[in-house]
Design a protein around this nucleic acid. Structure first.
Ligand code: ZN
Ligand code: ZN
Ligand code: ZN
Ligand code: ZN
Lengths: 157, 157
DNA sequence: GAGTCCCTTGTTACGGTATAACGTTTTGGG
DNA sequence: CCCAAAACGTTATACCGTAACAAGGGACTC
């Protein structure tokens, strides 16, 4: 899935079959609970992200959308929605999007990104505690956080 | 300088005159110490970043370059150089570049970014300690860090 | 000085990323 | 049913960044 920058391949384990259906079904419930709608395009983009199991570029989603394809605005709108509801995150340093494994609530995300195989791991940003202190000291009202660490994953070291 | 998303203007205090000359001169010393060259285009881009005193888009640098202008590769090369030597940082979530106030050494940077006026503050990423722990736990070799916090600065609250 | 190497630059062209703008369709409530 | 809000389709365009290749220029050797 991900391009191996140093030869490794990065076998991101995406969802398929039963597990995928379950995840999508659960997403539907959560969306309804939030008084929003999981429309076809939103559901399809989420499905693609879950299948990939790793970061995906927006134009790869557009290409993979299938059945008549999708135009950029369709996919970007779906991504915006998924981010807003906490189903996906945008990886700023990669210009890519990834499904959130903790599809539970909206939350600040932190990632470890392998520079070799492209794999990513979403970690708990306990670090935000430190940022909150710094923000407070600057009179800054914290509303969101992007944390992306680059390096080498265990498999690529 | 920055576009005020909610009416405020964001008067980033950039360098000018004497202070600017001093900063550029010091940069020349540091570059020489690193056995590199502060060429005209690199110096010019650093000057523009220092004058701005805040985040600047690459194409704004290209437009402001002056005297015959500059083509994209010229400016992007200069930015890459300035980042490599620790004179500037890239703000991933803004697609913009900013001069580093601690033009001292290469270091991991962290930013508070005001969603209203566009002002940024570079803070000390003590947080990296927390990330190091998480990276270690995942068998991940940490090599770089991007931390960008969004919110409202003191003036905009 | 001529040759050579390596870094830096100039230039053209292109590919990848994202959004504006506008009209149409769907949805859900009164 | 009728309306307003939300979502969508479509076209076009703006913005961000890089590939590729030829050319300059300083440093070092012979
Ligand atoms: Zn998440
Ligand atoms: Zn890896
Ligand atoms: Zn810095
Ligand atoms: Zn502000």
């Amino acid at each position: 899935m991900s391009k191996g920058a140093c030869g490794h391949e990065g076998e991101a384990a995406g969802l398929a079959g039963r597990a995928l259906d379950a995840a999508l079904s659960e997403a539907g419930v959560r969306v309804a609970a939030a008084d929003e709608r999981l429309t076809d395009s939103r559901r399809r983009v989420l499905e693609l992200l879950l299948e990939a199991g790793g970061p995906v570029k927006a134009y790869d989603l557009i290409a993979a959308y299938g059945q008549g394809g999708a135009k950029p605005p369709t996919v970007y709108r779906a991504l915006e929605f998924l981010e807003r509801l906490g189903f996906a995150h945008r990886l700023e340093s990669l210009n890519a999007y990834v499904a959130c494994p903790r599809s539970g609530e909206v939350h600040a995300a932190a990632f470890l990104i392998c520079q070799c195989c492209g794999a990513t791991a979403e970690i708990e940003p306990e670090v935000s505690a430190g940022v909150e202190v710094a923000a407070e000291a600057h009179g800054f009202e914290l509303r969101g956080l992007t944390l992306e660490a680059r390096g080498l994953c265990g498999a690529c070291r």
